[in-house]
Simulated assay, not measured.
Amino acid sequence: MSLRLPWLSSDPTAPFPPPHTALRDPDGLLAAGGDLHPLRLLNAYRQGIFPWFSEGEPILWWSPDPRTVFRTDGVRLSRRDLRFLRGTGWIARADTAFAAVVEACASASRPGQSGTWITHDMQAAYRVLHRLGRAHSIEVFEGARLVGGIYGVALGRMFFGESMVSLESGGSKAALAALAWRLHDWGWPLIDAQVENDHLLRMGAESLPRSRFLAAIAPLVDASEAGESGSPGPWTAAFGDLPVSRIAGR
Rank of each mutant, 00 (worst) to 15 (best):
G156Q: 13
M122R: 01
T96G: 10
E225I: 01
D35L: 10
A94V: 11
V140G: 03
P18R: 13
S54A: 13
G28T: 00
A218H: 06
V101T: 01
W117H: 05
P18M: 03
L214I: 02
P234H: 02
R80P: 06
A106D: 08
G133F: 10
D27N: 15
W181D: 15
P189L: 01
L77P: 09
R79N: 15
S137T: 04
G133P: 10
D73N: 07
E162W: 00
A218C: 01
D95Q: 07
G56Y: 15
G187A: 08
A177G: 13
L85E: 13
G240V: 05
E142D: 15
E228H: 03
C105P: 07
Y126A: 03
S166Q: 03
P66E: 08
M1L: 11
L36E: 07
S229W: 05
N43D: 15
P18V: 13
D35Y: 08
L132A: 02
S78M: 09
V244E: 02
A218V: 01
R46A: 14
D73E: 07
P234S: 12
T13Y: 14
E103Y: 02
G34E: 14
A178Y: 08
D81C: 13
P51Q: 10
P64T: 01
N43A: 15
P234D: 06
R157L: 03
P111H: 03
L201V: 07
F70C: 01
P66S: 08
L129Q: 02
G227D: 00
F159W: 09
L129K: 03
Y126N: 04
R250S: 14
G89N: 14
D185E: 14
R4W: 09
T119R: 08
A216P: 02
P26H: 10
E196T: 06
I49C: 01
L129Y: 04
P232E: 06
L200E: 00
F159E: 04
P58L: 12
R182T: 05
G28F: 00
I150P: 00
G161D: 03
L23R: 12
H20P: 13
A14V: 12
G115W: 07
V128Q: 12
A237L: 11
P18D: 15
H120G: 11
R157V: 05
R134N: 04
A144M: 07
R127H: 08
V102F: 03
L82R: 14
L3A: 11
W61H: 05
R80M: 15
R110W: 04
F160W: 04
R24I: 08
R202H: 06
S207L: 06
A97G: 04
G152R: 00
L200F: 01
H130L: 06
Q47E: 14
A32Q: 11
V147R: 09
E196F: 04
L30A: 13
L183M: 15
I138S: 02
Y126D: 03
R80S: 15
P243G: 08
M203F: 00
